[in-house]
């Protein structure tokens, strides 16, 4: 069971890239990976109320009430100065929402939605909340048309999946790298759980999409692509594969100086994967100039 409240970094009523149709997306705060290439590093940490952000807030939206950092969204100008100043890669603008709060948001937007996707951070870190939320949605007749998806790095043991999968329509699973040493270097964690999750989800018929971030000189290497092809084949010929390209947007630290993934490299990888028998390989639909 959860304590009934979850920290939400951001929510959207319109997303066309987080599963089928238009999806309400909840980005939960906090992650169990520390990816050097993370495009949303401010979702990784949990606020320690240190107050470093209060000092740099130009609009007075952030203040300290006793030991707590408090954010007033009505004054916030969304300049993101606080995110840059945060030493723990947290986000002082997070909102704490209950299951009822989320149901209310969904109801307000229900006619426009095909479903809900819970992303992160790492969504499965809040497994209790996920189960409570999905259970409540399944019990609400006016939300019956919504499909429920999870976007995850797969770092969850089988017993966790067994609890939430009966309530879940599909999972989008990110595999960060296949070589164990590379995975540790890129994410700070081992990849055995996420590889096991891929098999578990595919076996349960709940793997909506397998995602793979191509990073030049790291995950675009032939041995990584070959391992990806082998896994996808192993999971079944109907596996949807989505290739994403490493870009600089949002990235902090040394990876900000790495080369972005070029379009021709992504397309070459897609060709290789299709030649290896993977039927559906999606590449980014928009390329930045």
């Amino acid at each position: 069971m959860s304590d009934g409240v979850v920290a939400v970094s951001k929510f959207l009523a319109w997303s066309v890239v987080d599963g089928p149709g238009n999806r309400f997306v909840l980005f939960l705060q906090g992650c169990n990976y520390r990816c050097v290439t993370c495009h949303n590093p401010h979702t990784i940490g949990v606020c320690s109320d240190c107050g470093a952000c209060v000092a740099v807030c130009p609009s007075g939206a952030l203040t300290k009430a006793g030991r707590k950092v408090v954010h007033d969204p009505s004054v916030c100008i969304a300049c993101d100065s606080c995110l840059a100043a945060c030493p723990t890669r947290a986000n002082p603008m997070v909102r704490r929402l209950t299951v009822d709060d989320v149901l209310d948001l969904l109801r307000r937007n229900a006619p426009f939605l095909n479903g809900l996707t819970v992303s992160g951070g790492e969504a499965t870190l809040q497994l209790g909340f996920l189960i409570d939320l999905f259970t409540a949605i399944r019990a609400a007749p006016d939300l019956a048309h919504l499909t429920l998806f999870i976007d995850s790095n797969g770092h969850l043991p089988a017993e966790g999946w067994h609890k939430v999968l009966p309530l879940t329509d599909g999972v989008m699973l990110d595999i960060k790298a296949f070589d164990p040493e590379r995975h540790r270097r890129l994410t700070g964690a081992d990849n055995d759980l996420s590889l096991a999750s891929a098999k578990l989800l595919a076996g349960a018929g709940k793997l909506y999409e397998l995602r793979f971030l191509l990073i030049p000189g790291e995950t675009d290497r032939p041995e990584e692509i070959a391992a990806l092809a082998a896994l996808a084949r192993d999971l079944g010929p109907e596996t949807r594969l989505r290739l994403n390209a490493f870009q600089h947007h949002g990235v902090r630290g040394p990876a900000a100086n790495w080369s972005p993934m070029p379009r021709d490299g992504v397309e070459a990888a897609a060709v290789t994967l299709k030649a290896a028998g993977i039927a559906e390989v999606a590449t980014p639909s928009v390329w930045l100039p």
Binding site: W14, L113, S285
Partner: peptide, 20 residues
């Protein structure tokens, strides 16, 4: 005005129109 990514997800445009 919808961004280019909806091309890969026509169901979303349908749902938006239906809801509106």
């Amino acid at each position: 005005t919808l961004d280019e990514t909806v091309r890969a997800n026509p169901e979303a445009v349908f749902q938006l129109a239906k809801g509106a």
